[in-house]
Simulated assay, not measured.
Amino acid sequence: MPHPIMYADDDPGLAELRRLCLGLPGAEEKISHGRPVFHTGRIFAGFGGSVKLRPGEHRRWPSMLIVKIDPAELPAVDADERFLFPAYWGAGGWRGLDLAAPQVDWTEVGELVDASYRLIAPRRLVAELDARTAPD
């Protein structure tokens, strides 16, 4: 049985996140477990999820960005109260950021997406991204 769709196209931050993610080389969007994820064969960003409060109890976070964090950066990210530990993803080094929060820093979101993409995407796609941004 497929998962029900758990988002709407007008959810806070989704249009902006789509623009950032789909602008990366080879990036595509698909629905996984009822929510949008962005991938290049492997997922590098997700939209929406939940946070485990205690055993058997979750809080849904419908406008959460979920990205892979470089292990060297995890202590700093975990010390920042804006970041969430997403259920199912968190133990693998993924963290969430609420895109519906007041005054989202879209430059920071772009940097998080870029860093996650670089950790996940194939080397040839990362090289293509680097070629796009290399100074002439």
Rank of each mutant, 00 (worst) to 15 (best):
M1E: 14
H3M: 11
P4H: 10
I5G: 04
I5M: 10
M6T: 14
D9A: 15
D10W: 08
D11P: 01
L14T: 10
A15R: 13
A15F: 08
R18S: 04
R19V: 11
R19C: 14
L24I: 08
P25C: 00
P25K: 03
E28I: 15
E28P: 01
K30E: 12
S32W: 05
P36I: 06
H39P: 04
G41F: 05
F47Y: 14
G49D: 10
K52F: 00
K52R: 13
R54E: 12
E57N: 10
E57L: 15
H58N: 15
R59L: 14
R60E: 15
W61M: 15
I66C: 15
V67R: 07
V67I: 14
E73I: 02
E73W: 07
P75W: 07
V77T: 11
D80N: 02
L84C: 04
A87S: 13
Y88S: 03
W89Q: 09
G90P: 03
W94D: 05
G96F: 04
L97E: 02
A101H: 06
A101V: 01
W106F: 05
T107F: 09
T107I: 14
E108W: 12
S116V: 10
R118F: 06
A121L: 05
R123Q: 14
R124T: 11
E128F: 05
A134R: 15
P135F: 07
